[in-house]
Amino acid sequence: MNVRTDIPLLAQKLRPEDVRADLRVIAALVEPGSRVLDVGCGDGLLLAYLAREKGVDGRGIELSQAGVNACVAQGLSVVQGDADTDLGDYPANGYDYVILSQTLQATRKPYKVLKQMLRIGRHAIVSFPNFGHWRVRLSLFWNGRMPVTAALPQSWYETPNIHFCTIADFEQLCRDMGAVIERRVSVDAFGRRERIVAPGALANLFAEQGMFLLRNKN
Protein backbone atom coordinates (compact mmCIF):
# COMPACT_ATOMS: atom_id res chain seq x y z
CA MET A 1 0.00 0.00 0.00
CA ASN A 2 1.32 3.40 -0.94
CA VAL A 3 1.73 5.62 2.09
CA ARG A 4 0.35 9.06 1.35
CA THR A 5 1.41 11.78 3.71
CA ASP A 6 -1.08 14.45 2.69
CA ILE A 7 -4.15 12.76 4.19
CA PRO A 8 -4.85 11.62 7.73
CA LEU A 9 -3.53 8.27 8.88
CA LEU A 10 -7.00 6.90 9.59
CA ALA A 11 -8.07 7.59 6.01
CA GLN A 12 -5.27 5.46 4.60
CA LYS A 13 -6.49 2.40 6.46
CA LEU A 14 -10.16 2.81 5.56
CA ARG A 15 -11.86 0.33 3.29
CA PRO A 16 -15.21 1.27 1.72
CA GLU A 17 -16.98 -1.42 3.75
CA ASP A 18 -15.68 0.19 6.95
CA VAL A 19 -17.53 3.36 6.20
CA ARG A 20 -21.15 3.51 7.25
CA ALA A 21 -23.35 3.57 4.19
CA ASP A 22 -25.00 6.86 5.18
CA LEU A 23 -21.57 8.50 5.35
CA ARG A 24 -20.93 7.36 1.77
CA VAL A 25 -24.24 8.90 0.75
CA ILE A 26 -23.20 12.17 2.42
CA ALA A 27 -19.82 12.03 0.71
CA ALA A 28 -21.59 11.76 -2.65
CA LEU A 29 -23.16 15.19 -2.00
CA VAL A 30 -19.79 16.90 -1.37
CA GLU A 31 -17.77 18.55 -4.16
CA PRO A 32 -14.12 17.44 -4.29
CA GLY A 33 -11.57 19.81 -2.75
CA SER A 34 -14.12 21.76 -0.75
CA ARG A 35 -13.95 23.06 2.81
CA VAL A 36 -16.04 20.99 5.20
CA LEU A 37 -17.06 21.42 8.85
CA ASP A 38 -18.45 18.23 10.40
CA VAL A 39 -20.55 19.09 13.45
CA GLY A 40 -20.67 16.15 15.83
CA CYS A 41 -17.90 14.33 13.98
CA GLY A 42 -17.63 11.45 16.47
CA ASP A 43 -14.45 9.47 15.97
CA GLY A 44 -13.74 11.25 12.68
CA LEU A 45 -14.73 8.50 10.26
CA LEU A 46 -16.58 10.81 7.85
CA LEU A 47 -13.83 13.48 7.94
CA ALA A 48 -11.18 10.86 7.26
CA TYR A 49 -13.25 9.36 4.44
CA LEU A 50 -13.92 12.78 2.88
CA ALA A 51 -10.23 13.66 3.09
CA ARG A 52 -9.29 10.53 1.20
CA GLU A 53 -12.13 10.26 -1.31
CA LYS A 54 -12.81 13.93 -1.95
CA GLY A 55 -9.59 15.68 -0.91
CA VAL A 56 -11.56 18.03 1.31
CA ASP A 57 -10.07 20.45 3.84
CA GLY A 58 -12.01 19.14 6.82
CA ARG A 59 -12.58 20.35 10.37
CA GLY A 60 -14.69 18.88 13.11
CA ILE A 61 -16.53 19.72 16.31
CA GLU A 62 -17.27 16.93 18.75
CA LEU A 63 -18.88 16.97 22.17
CA SER A 64 -17.28 13.84 23.60
CA GLN A 65 -13.70 14.26 24.74
CA ALA A 66 -12.85 10.67 23.85
CA GLY A 67 -14.01 11.31 20.27
CA VAL A 68 -11.99 14.53 19.99
CA ASN A 69 -8.82 12.94 21.32
CA ALA A 70 -9.18 10.01 18.93
CA CYS A 71 -9.63 12.41 15.99
CA VAL A 72 -6.64 14.60 16.83
CA ALA A 73 -4.43 11.56 17.45
CA GLN A 74 -5.31 10.53 13.86
CA GLY A 75 -4.19 13.88 12.51
CA LEU A 76 -7.67 15.36 12.03
CA SER A 77 -8.39 18.99 12.95
CA VAL A 78 -11.08 18.68 15.58
CA VAL A 79 -12.06 20.77 18.59
CA GLN A 80 -14.08 19.83 21.62
CA GLY A 81 -17.27 21.81 21.43
CA ASP A 82 -21.05 21.93 21.50
CA ALA A 83 -23.19 22.47 18.38
CA ASP A 84 -25.73 24.35 20.49
CA THR A 85 -23.30 26.95 21.81
CA ASP A 86 -20.10 27.08 19.76
CA LEU A 87 -21.19 27.56 16.14
CA GLY A 88 -21.65 31.28 16.78
CA ASP A 89 -17.85 31.73 16.83
CA TYR A 90 -17.41 30.66 13.24
CA PRO A 91 -17.29 33.32 10.55
CA ALA A 92 -20.01 33.52 7.87
CA ASN A 93 -19.38 31.51 4.69
CA GLY A 94 -16.13 30.07 6.06
CA TYR A 95 -17.01 26.62 4.71
CA ASP A 96 -18.47 25.10 1.57
CA TYR A 97 -20.36 22.46 3.54
CA VAL A 98 -21.41 22.21 7.15
CA ILE A 99 -22.50 18.66 7.92
CA LEU A 100 -24.77 17.50 10.74
CA SER A 101 -25.03 13.73 10.52
CA GLN A 102 -27.52 12.02 12.86
CA THR A 103 -27.08 14.81 15.39
CA LEU A 104 -29.92 17.30 14.77
CA GLN A 105 -32.31 15.35 16.98
CA ALA A 106 -29.80 15.48 19.87
CA THR A 107 -29.43 19.28 19.85
CA ARG A 108 -31.27 21.47 22.32
CA LYS A 109 -32.16 24.12 19.73
CA PRO A 110 -32.37 22.50 16.29
CA TYR A 111 -33.68 25.70 14.69
CA LYS A 112 -30.72 27.79 15.93
CA VAL A 113 -28.20 25.10 15.00
CA LEU A 114 -29.58 24.90 11.47
CA LYS A 115 -29.56 28.71 11.15
CA GLN A 116 -25.92 28.78 12.22
CA MET A 117 -25.01 26.01 9.76
CA LEU A 118 -26.56 27.93 6.89
CA ARG A 119 -24.69 31.06 7.97
CA ILE A 120 -21.30 29.34 8.29
CA GLY A 121 -21.54 27.17 5.18
CA ARG A 122 -22.57 27.80 1.59
CA HIS A 123 -24.38 24.48 1.93
CA ALA A 124 -25.64 22.43 4.84
CA ILE A 125 -26.02 18.67 4.81
CA VAL A 126 -28.37 17.28 7.45
CA SER A 127 -29.36 13.69 8.12
CA PHE A 128 -31.73 12.50 10.84
CA PRO A 129 -33.93 9.53 11.75
CA ASN A 130 -37.40 9.92 10.23
CA PHE A 131 -40.18 9.61 12.78
CA GLY A 132 -42.70 9.51 9.95
CA HIS A 133 -41.50 6.06 8.82
CA TRP A 134 -44.32 3.52 8.62
CA ARG A 135 -42.72 1.22 11.19
CA VAL A 136 -42.59 4.07 13.72
CA ARG A 137 -46.18 4.94 12.95
CA LEU A 138 -47.29 1.31 13.28
CA SER A 139 -45.39 0.88 16.55
CA LEU A 140 -47.12 3.88 18.04
CA PHE A 141 -50.47 2.85 16.58
CA TRP A 142 -50.48 -0.81 17.65
CA ASN A 143 -48.38 -0.73 20.81
CA GLY A 144 -48.93 2.80 21.98
CA ARG A 145 -45.24 2.81 22.92
CA MET A 146 -42.35 4.99 21.79
CA PRO A 147 -40.60 3.02 19.05
CA VAL A 148 -37.31 1.22 19.63
CA THR A 149 -35.80 0.22 16.29
CA ALA A 150 -32.44 -0.68 14.77
CA ALA A 151 -31.87 2.98 13.94
CA LEU A 152 -33.23 4.18 17.31
CA PRO A 153 -32.11 1.50 19.73
CA GLN A 154 -32.51 3.37 23.04
CA SER A 155 -35.58 3.69 25.25
CA TRP A 156 -37.19 7.12 25.55
CA TYR A 157 -35.67 7.75 28.98
CA GLU A 158 -32.12 6.92 27.88
CA THR A 159 -31.95 8.37 24.43
CA PRO A 160 -29.81 11.48 23.82
CA ASN A 161 -32.28 12.22 21.01
CA ILE A 162 -34.58 14.88 22.42
CA HIS A 163 -35.96 16.54 19.28
CA PHE A 164 -37.42 13.98 16.93
CA CYS A 165 -39.08 15.04 13.72
CA THR A 166 -40.46 13.59 10.53
CA ILE A 167 -39.26 14.39 7.02
CA ALA A 168 -42.41 16.50 6.57
CA ASP A 169 -41.64 18.39 9.79
CA PHE A 170 -38.11 19.08 8.62
CA GLU A 171 -39.24 20.33 5.21
CA GLN A 172 -41.67 22.67 6.97
CA LEU A 173 -38.79 23.95 9.14
CA CYS A 174 -36.71 24.62 6.00
CA ARG A 175 -39.59 26.62 4.49
CA ASP A 176 -40.04 28.56 7.74
CA MET A 177 -36.40 29.59 7.93
CA GLY A 178 -35.99 30.29 4.24
CA ALA A 179 -33.63 27.42 3.52
CA VAL A 180 -33.59 26.08 -0.03
CA ILE A 181 -33.68 22.30 -0.34
CA GLU A 182 -31.22 21.52 -3.12
CA ARG A 183 -31.42 17.74 -2.85
CA ARG A 184 -33.24 15.21 -0.70
CA VAL A 185 -32.14 11.61 -0.36
CA SER A 186 -34.14 8.85 1.29
CA VAL A 187 -32.03 6.42 3.24
CA ASP A 188 -32.96 3.04 4.72
CA ALA A 189 -32.18 1.78 8.21
CA PHE A 190 -28.71 0.66 7.20
CA GLY A 191 -27.85 4.00 5.69
CA ARG A 192 -28.21 2.82 2.11
CA ARG A 193 -29.91 4.99 -0.41
CA GLU A 194 -33.48 3.68 -0.88
CA ARG A 195 -33.75 1.78 -4.13
CA ILE A 196 -37.27 3.01 -4.74
CA VAL A 197 -37.17 6.78 -4.75
CA ALA A 198 -40.34 7.73 -2.98
CA PRO A 199 -41.49 11.24 -3.78
CA GLY A 200 -42.87 13.75 -1.26
CA ALA A 201 -45.34 12.27 1.20
CA LEU A 202 -44.26 8.74 0.34
CA ALA A 203 -40.66 9.51 1.41
CA ASN A 204 -42.00 10.47 4.81
CA LEU A 205 -43.64 7.04 4.99
CA PHE A 206 -40.86 4.87 3.57
CA ALA A 207 -37.50 6.51 4.36
CA GLU A 208 -35.95 5.57 7.68
CA GLN A 209 -33.59 8.53 7.48
CA GLY A 210 -33.98 11.88 5.83
CA MET A 211 -30.94 13.44 4.23
CA PHE A 212 -31.00 16.97 2.86
CA LEU A 213 -28.62 19.24 1.00
CA LEU A 214 -29.61 22.82 1.83
CA ARG A 215 -28.50 26.34 1.14
CA ASN A 216 -29.56 29.78 2.27
CA LYS A 217 -32.14 31.55 0.07
CA ASN A 218 -29.84 34.55 -0.39
Binding site: S77, V79, D89, Y90
Partner: peptide, 18 residues
Amino acid sequence: VVHALNAAAANVSFVEIA
Protein backbone atom coordinates in the same frame (compact mmCIF):
# COMPACT_ATOMS: atom_id res chain seq x y z
CA VAL B 1 -8.20 30.90 22.31
CA VAL B 2 -9.99 28.15 20.35
CA HIS B 3 -13.05 30.38 19.93
CA ALA B 4 -10.84 33.20 18.66
CA LEU B 5 -9.07 30.84 16.25
CA ASN B 6 -12.42 29.55 14.97
CA ALA B 7 -13.55 33.12 14.44
CA ALA B 8 -10.36 33.65 12.42
CA ALA B 9 -11.20 30.48 10.39
CA ALA B 10 -7.93 28.95 11.54
CA ASN B 11 -7.02 25.28 11.35
CA VAL B 12 -7.34 24.30 14.98
CA SER B 13 -7.53 21.19 17.11
CA PHE B 14 -8.25 21.26 20.80
CA VAL B 15 -8.17 18.49 23.38
CA GLU B 16 -8.76 18.55 27.09
CA ILE B 17 -6.99 15.71 28.85
CA ALA B 18 -8.46 14.13 31.97
